[in-house]
């Protein structure tokens, strides 16, 4: 088998609920992200004022990631979201109802499309490269990562910016609560971006070894067996596994929580001694994914 070239994570940025677990927007119900001062990351006031919260979070995380890797212009921008720009979508849909399908405001519509963040990142950075948004519910972020891996391994791109964002709104919270989605973890939200590259730098955080997605009614034993096979196939049998409970207590539950988990794993890899590989296991309902990181 031909050995695949490594894919490095050269920078990572995340906007997430506070790691001390006190960021609740609806007390006892939902973890809310701590937002940075956007003026530094999105200096254009006109652009900024039109962005909804999720767009600001996504664009700011992407910009922070690019700023950390100064001078890099990615050959692809890949964004992922499970629910898209939900607050603006709700605003637009409500104005559709209230105005009897007339007199619709343009801004909420323009900003409510799923690819808004990817487009804004491209515009802000004058980047005309491949730009795609993945909207595959719980698999959205992992799909973007797979695309990035393929682009870099097939030498279609050297540097790829990939990230994800999802926001929580009171309507979403209520609807998903009725469906029983908050039984295992509190509702959450966040945005995280990564600069993936075929080139190692002084700031490289980790190696992104592989991503695997699968769905179905898997029991604990079946998951464990699949995990062992995956780790053995990548010569990483001694990996530390980050289970959903390990990171969703910080970020909460949302479709692209795996992006926070990856950021968290990068942080662990950088700070931990011993440097074992880290496996991120994400699961929501019947969707499961593995993301394997190795130390540099």
């Amino acid at each position: 088998m031909t050995r695949q070239p490594p894919v490095y994570i050269n920078s990572a940025a995340s906007i997430h609920p506070p790691l001390d677990g006190v960021g609740e927007c609806l007390p006892g119900k939902c973890l809310t992200a701590v937002e940075p001062d956007y003026k530094r990351l999105i200096p254009d006031a006109t652009l900024r004022r039109r962005m909804s919260r999720i767009v600001r979070m996504g664009v700011a995380a992407g910009q922070a990631c690019l700023q950390d890797a100064a001078g890099v212009s990615p050959e692809a921008i890949l964004t992922a979201t499970g629910m898209g720009c939900l607050a603006d979508t709700e605003k637009f849909m409500n104005s559709l109802l209230d105005g009897d399908e007339e007199r619709l405001t343009p801004t909420a519509f323009i900003q409510s499309t799923f690819n808004t963040v990817g487009a804004q990142l491209a515009l802000l950075n004058g980047n005309q490269s491949y730009n795609t948004t993945y909207v595959h519910r719980t698999f959205s972020f992992e799909s973007a990562l797979l695309d990035a891996l393929l682009l870099i391994r097939e030498r279609e791109a050297v540097d790829v910016l990939a990230g994800a964002m999802d926001e929580q709104t009171p309507t979403l919270y209520t609807v998903l609560q009725r469906l029983g989605c908050w039984k295992r973890a509190m509702a959450g939200e966040g945005a995280a971006f990564f600069l993936l590259s075929g080139r190692r730098t002084d700031g490289t955080l980790a190696i992104l070894q592989d991503v695997e997605l699968f769905s179905g009614d898997y029991g604990e034993q079946a998951i464990r067996e699949r995990m062992e096979r995956f780790l053995l196939a990548h010569d990483a049998a001694g990996a530390r596994t980050l289970y959903p409970a390990d990171y969703k207590r910080f970020c909460g539950e949302y479709p692209t929580a795996a992006s926070f988990a990856l950021w968290y794993a990068c942080r662990e890899l950088r700070e931990a001694e011993g440097k074992r590989p880290v496996l991120v296991y994400n699961a929501f309902l019947d969707a499961h994914s593995f993301i394997l990181l190795k130390p540099v």
Partner: peptide, 12 residues
């Protein structure tokens, strides 16, 4: 510093 999108918002 308003622009054409703002003009649409004001019309509405």
């Amino acid at each position: 510093g308003l622009d054409s999108i703002d003009a649409l918002e004001i019309i509405l």
